[in-house]
Design a protein around this nucleic acid. Sequence first.
DNA 1: ATACTCCCCTGAGAGC
DNA 2: TGCTCTCAGGGGAGTA
Length: 274
Amino acid sequence: MPELPEVETVVQTLKAQLGHATFTHVDVLWDNIIAQDLEEFKTRIQNQTIQNYGRKGKYLLFELDDYMLIAHLRMEGKFYIQMPEEPINKHIHVIFHLKDGRELRYHDTRKFGRMSIRPKRQDLNYEELANTGPDALDENVTSLELYHKWHQKRIRLKHMLLDQRFLAGIGNIYADEICFSCQLHPATLVTHLSKKDFENICFHTRRILKGAVQAGGTTIRSYTSSLGVHGRFQLELKVHQRVHQPCICCQTPIKKIQLEGRGTYFCPMCQKRK
DNA sequence: ATACTCCCCTGAGAGC
DNA sequence: TGCTCTCAGGGGAGTA
């Protein structure tokens, strides 16, 4: 599923392939993808040119002349740039028509993704982003700030990592990888974490996500209009999806448990509960 | 304020 | 082979 690095790859790829494209109109084939009044969405997109591309956490931000097109891919959302004559896959739910004749098509097998168009504003205070904290790659946020804000909460480490108000962009896969790199049990209570632990969490979060962005970036050339734009995570996962396989550090079989309703992988030897 | 539960969806995999 | 059942999962909404 797309997490921060995949979304970043999508942003960069669309920027390279679409540039300052202009929308003529949009066809919506599945209404629930649109998180606002459908007619309002359709009206606002007309004749808008993309001025800039951005991202906050897992949200894609297309800055238009007067509006911001905000999209979340959730589990399986993808954007394709295709020509009108290309067949429309059954999982295509939104078709943006471009002035240059191409189409930006939104593909989403499970229909979990959402998008909306809001009047543009400088402060990024869009309702969609209300629960989105600082971007995980925003270096201006210090571990000490995060420590003061979070260490007294009665939640587990995995919960904090998945909470987009902590650092936006971390999903289930990277949360497990971060816990592993920090040698912390995902069920550790946040109140038991030290300032040093928060330092490690920030360091490894950024290290892992940046590495994944790089990996996504390296495959950017392979994207074509028919291939789809969805980002690829090619880094080797150290614990996630590796149940029963030996830990790369100590050979202990990786365990899988349910935590916060999420499948959670960890090494019972390397990651001790504090 | 915080903590659950439900919901949105489909494809994959299990069981028969 | 083919049917039915179960489940994953980000995040918002609703409820306790």
